[in-house]
């Protein structure tokens, strides 16, 4: 386990910070307790943990979709809504074309110059040729690309992703992993990525926060050391294997303690 790491994060003010956050739902379930962590500018942060440990709740709190019952979330971004969100499902409007789906955030926020921005976002995910297709005509991986393009169309500082590739086959997932890393480097944004896959989190993240089972807290924190840019070679390298092994063991410990 690496030392508490804020190398990139603490160089300037963090983008957002959870301070003693707790979340208890009205039905009495406590999803999160004593949650403390901060998100550094430009980092790729993975929230890793078993299903139902409150990672998704943390993400929703960060997006402002729900409020904490304890503690506070401090945001230092320009606007509190300067956020893109990618759900576990593509969550596209089935009655609208790809372009109309991607345009949606701009319409809702009354932002102009829509067409060029829609075109740009579609080009980022490599779907220029599908702007007039309907979601049902696309494969699962392509739908997820549309969903990512929609999240990127407002050029958010913070991109939140809730197990976005969990439902995809491995080939699509690996491709989207690589494309996501390329986008992250190109756009210079901050990504918070929820996953239950050790392998995915080690491949993608610059830092991993491991959550305990419900109620969720941060049990451990890892810096991932990897050559840049990461690619297929990293996925088969001994460093990658060693870090996956270390984190899997830590996850097993966390699960055993619960």
């Amino acid at each position: 386990m690496s030392a508490p790491a804020h190398a990139a994060a603490s160089s300037d003010k963090p983008l957002a910070a959870f301070k003693g956050v707790g979340k208890t739902y009205p039905n009495g379930v406590t999803a999160l307790e004593h949650l403390d962590f901060s998100i550094g500018r430009g980092e790729f942060l993975a929230l890793l943990g078993p299903s139902g440990c409150g990672k998704s709740t943390a993400l929703r709190l960060l997006a402002g979709l729900t409020g904490p019952t304890k503690g506070e979330i401090v945001r230092h971004s320009a606007g509190s809504h300067d956020v893109g969100f990618v759900f576990q499902e593509p969550t596209l409007m089935p009655w609208a074309t790809v372009a109309q789906n991607v345009r949606l955030p701009l319409r809702l926020k009354n932002i102009e110059y829509q067409e060029s921005r829609v075109q740009e976002a579609l080009a980022l995910v490599g779907l220029d040729d599908f702007r007039d297709a309907y979601p049902r005509e696309l494969s699962g991986g392509m739908k997820m690309r549309v969903s990512i393009a929609r999240a990127l169309v407002t050029k958010p500082q913070l991109l939140l992703m809730d197990e976005p590739f969990a439902a995809l086959d491995e080939i699509s997932r690996f491709r989207l992993n690589d494309d996501l890393l390329a986008l992250w480097r190109q756009l210079n944004c901050t990504v918070v990525f929820v996953t239950h896959s050790v392998f995915e989190s080690v491949y993608l993240a610059s830092r991993i926060l491991m959550f305990t089972p419900r109620p969720g807290r941060v049990a451990a924190e890892f810096e991932i050391k990897a050559p840049e840019p990461r690619d297929g070679q990293f996925r088969t390298s001994p460093e990658y294997g060693a870090q996956c092994r270390e984190i899997s063991a830590a996850l097993a410990n966390v699960m055993a303690d619960a």
Partner: peptide, 28 residues
């Protein structure tokens, strides 16, 4: 769809936009 509803909430959509861009087409 609940996620779509949250998406509209995330981008600060008002009642009318949510009604005409989301609920009406979903009800069609």
């Amino acid at each position: 769809d609940r996620n779509l509803q949250e998406l509209f909430q995330l981008y600060g959509a008002n009642r009318w936009k949510t009604l005409f861009l989301l609920r009406v087409p979903a009800a069609l």
